[in-house]
């Protein structure tokens, strides 16, 4: 079984047509579906939040069979994720893509669960604590993209479950949970 770092690749990763955009509708639909799934699984396992079309993304090439995705096919697969709400273009020129292997709503729910499980209700955490603190180590929250985290927290704030406030130092913000 082929590996990409510590990520286990599926067998079809060595199937050359997997890397050529298929013109026949039915075949292409299946191909797009498989790519979407693989991108999400891979990003989740490697905690990757952004995929750049012009940067080297290990998943988009397979040196073992000497195949790589064309720019067009990358756009097709990522656009498919975007249209499903599992990803967002980060710029107008569609060069960078934010991959949401959990949706903002899912992240918000995850944070609340985390807060409850750790008895942090009515507690205060800084944003940086959530991303790299001891409390979140080993959870999905460790290493979360700052933008994604802020959006999840704002969603919680709207629901009255959290309050974001400026900390004493300007470069960090605090969150008070009120679950």
């Amino acid at each position: 079984m082929q590996k990409l770092g510590d990520f286990r690749l599926p067998h079809f990763f060595n199937y050359p047509p997997y890397f050529t955009l298929q013109p026949v509708r039915e075949t292409r639909e299946k191909q797009v579906q498989l790519w979407k799934e693989l991108i999400l699984v891979y990003c989740r396992s490697q905690k990757i939040f952004s995929v750049g079309l012009e940067e080297d993304f290990p998943l988009f090439s397979n040196p073992a069979i000497e195949r790589c995705l064309s720019h067009e096919s990358k756009v097709v697969f990522l656009s498919a994720l975007v249209s499903e709400g599992r990803a967002e273009w980060m710029d107008k020129s569609h060069k960078k893509c934010l991959v949401l292997w959990l949706s903002i709503q899912d992240w918000a729910d995850y944070i609340i669960n985390f807060v409850k499980e750790n008895g942090l209700e009515d507690g205060v955490m800084t944003v940086e604590d959530i991303r790299s603190g001891i409390e979140t180590r080993g959870t999905e929250l460790a290493g979360i993209d700052r933008g994604v985290l802020m959006r999840a927290l704002k969603l919680l704030e709207q629901k009255g479950k959290a309050a974001i406030f400026k900390g004493s130092s300007t470069d960090d913000e605090g969150v008070k949970f009120s679950a």
Binding site: F12, Y15, P16, P17, F19, T20, Q22, P23, V24, T27, K30, Q31, L34, E66, R67
Partner: peptide, 17 residues
């Protein structure tokens, strides 16, 4: 299904199904 690569244009049995 097709495979377009620097080696040329080849066809493989469709395994996507």
């Amino acid at each position: 299904c097709r495979d377009v690569s620097p080696d040329g244009f080849r066809f493989y049995v469709n395994l996507f199904k």
